[in-house]
Structure formats: structure tokens, C-alpha cells
């Protein structure tokens, strides 16, 4: 055992430090994850009512609005990709990337463009040679819905100006701590099915307790103040916004849960290493003591014989 005890001791100390950090990051991620999930769930009643409003007013008449226009021929697709800003989160970004890769491969007939959220999303889009129309990297944990307005404005402009015919949102849905899935769903044109899908999947809970839209009752016409157009002009952008907002929250919850798992694995690996190194250290220490004793006793023996 040639390794000196000093070097082993140093290594143990450094691994212990790393262990402390990964532990701390694990716990921080756990609490952030909980917050993101709660916020995503809290926005659900609002999203439901807004959707019901849309369903209610479109029941008795054909509602027309540029944001609801289903274009027959689709030439160009805009992807809103949600990734993370920071690394060290296990497979979170890799999954998004893989999904994106497959999507681009199987949809080569369309012209694909991207709006990215998070540094990693931007990097991947560039790697795949997707033109990035806009990149947003300053969304943090306490994200407010107003901050998403910029994203939704840009997306709506792209859609309305005709530079894309369809907008898809790609984000990571939080199912449970161990399970996240990358989801690709329609954002524009606005369609009630898209939105109800989003809300049902929010927060990884698939109950329908909040759902009341089945209560189809009235045939009486809704009055609009000031006008139908103005109401739709406000409702549709907000629905788009809320969807992006929820997508970001879901992704954040997934990111933090992925990071938490990655950090937990790292902590466990560090514990194993510390255990092994301590064993090696003890062995080396014992060895050197044995060696010293045998040297001393050999010396004493030599002195006695002399």
C-alpha cells in the first residue's frame, strides 16, 4: 500500500465537501419543485374558467377570430421549446433534445422555426439548425404571468403575420418525481381541446374535479359588453399566455425534480466513495504503524545482539 495516508485524507475531505453541496442542492431542488407544482395547480381554476368562457360563448354561434383560424395548408411550424437555464439536472434537457431531434426528422416537409425558453433550449435549437425567432432566458422560479406576455405576443405576431401556420408548445410535463414526459401540443390556432388537455395534465394530477364544462345547459344568448370582438381580443391572448405559463411551470417542476434525483444519486455515490476511502485509509494507517513497530523492534533486536 504505497498511497500515503495524507493524500487519502485529502481526498476524503474533498469528497465530503462535494457531498455536502449535492445534499444541499437536493434539498433546495425539492422545495423549488414543490413550489412550482403548487403554482401550476393554483392557476388551474383560472384556466378552466377562461376555457369555459370560450366554450360558452362559442356554443350558440360560430366564433371567428384570427387567432382561431385553422389554415388548410400548413407550410411552416413554430415551436416554442422550454428547456432549462442551468445544467446539472440529469436527463431533463437531454429528453427535450431527443424529442426535438425526432420531431425535426419526421417533419421535414415543414419549415420549422423556434422560440426558445432557457439557455439549453436555445443551444439545442441552434445545434439542430433550427432558426431561432426569439430566445428568452430570464425566467426564474418566481415567474409571474406578466413575464410570459412577451413570449405570447411574439408567438401571436408570428402566427397572425402568416409567417407560421401552426404553433406547437414543447415542454416537459411533471407526472411525478420519478416520471417526467416531454409533451408536444398545439398552442395556435386556439382550439378548446388543446387547452383542456393542458389543464387536465397540470401538476401531474389527472382528476376532473374542477371540471364543470359538462354542465351544458343554456341556449340563451350571451350579451357582450362592449362587443364580442373585443372580448375575444382579450380572452384568446390570455388563454395562450396561461398555457405558456403553465408549460414553463411544469418544466420547472420537472427540471427541479430531475435535478433532485441527479443530486441524490451524486450524494449516494459520494457516500460510497467516502466509505471505501475510509477503509483504504485505515488499512494504510495500520500498515504504516505495523511497519514502524517492526522497524523499531528490529532495531532493538539489533542493539541487543550487539
Amino acid at each position: 500500500m504505497a498511497i500515503s495516508t495524507k493524500i487519502i485524507k485529502q481526498r476524503i475531505r474533498s469528497i465530503k465537501n462535494t457531498h455536502k453541496m449535492t445534499r444541499a442542492m437536493e434539498m433546495v431542488s425539492a422545495s423549488k419543485m414543490r413550489k412550482a407544482v403548487n403554482r401550476s395547480l393554483a392557476s388551474r381554476p383560472y384556466a378552466w374558467r377562461a376555457l369555459e368562457l370560450l366554450i360558452n360563448i362559442s356554443r350558440d354561434r360560430v366564433v371567428n377570430h384570427p387567432l382561431m383560424e385553422n389554415r388548410k395548408k400548413i407550410n411552416s411550424v413554430l415551436l416554442v421549446i422550454v428547456g432549462s437555464n442551468k445544467g446539472l439536472c440529469g436527463s431533463f434537457n437531454v429528453n427535450v433534445f431527443r424529442f426535438l431531434h425526432d420531431y425535426v426528422k419526421s417533419n421535414s416537409q415543414f419549415e420549422i422555426k423556434a422560440v426558445t425558453i432557457g439557455r439549453y433550449a436555445e443551444r439545442y435549437a441552434k445545434k439542430l439548425n433550427i432558426p431561432v425567432v426569439g430566445s428568452f432566458v430570464d425566467f426564474h422560479e418566481g415567474i409571474e404571468v406578466e413575464e410570459v406576455r412577451g413570449v405570447s405576443k411574439l408567438v401571436q405576431q408570428e402566427f397572425l403575420s402568416g409567417s407560421c401556420d401552426k404553433v406547437q408548445l414543447i415542454y416537459t410535463n411533471y407526472v411525478s418525481v420519478l416520471k417526467n414526459e416531454v409533451i408536444n401540443r398545439g398552442l395556435l390556432p386556439v382550439h378548446p381541446d388543446n387547452i383542456s388537455f393542458m389543464i387536465e395534465h397540470a401538476g401531474g394530477v389527472k382528476d376532473n374535479q374542477d371540471r364543470q364544462s359538462d354542465k351544458v345547459e343554456s341556449m340563451s344568448l350571451y350579451l357582450f359588453e362592449p362587443s364580442e370582438e373585443e372580448v375575444l381580443n382579450l380572452v384568446l391572448p390570455i388563454l395562450t399566455e396561461v398555457q405558456i405559463y403553465q408549460g414553463i411551470l411544469e418544466s420547472q417542476a420537472s427540471e427541479h425534480s430531475a435535478r433532485m434525483m441527479a443530486m441524490r444519486n451524486a450524494s449516494e455515490a459520494a457516500e460510497d466513495m467516502i466509505r471505501e476511502l475510509t477503509l483504504t485509509y485505515n488499512k494504510a494507517r495500520q500498515e504504516s504503524i505495523t511497519k514502524e513497530i517492526s522497524e523499531i523492534s528490529a532495531g532493538a533486536e539489533a542493539l541487543r545482539q550487539a
Binding site: S220, Y222, F224, E225
Partner: peptide, 19 residues
Amino acid sequence: PTQAGEITVLARHTPLVSL
């Protein structure tokens, strides 16, 4: 308070959407 002025809603009000 709505964009079109203040409104008071009582039971059985007619269906309405406002800002």
C-alpha cells in the same frame, strides 16, 4: 366595475360577458 360602467348583478341576471 366594468369598461362600460358599473353594473349591479342580482340573481337570474341575463348571461353576459364584459370586461
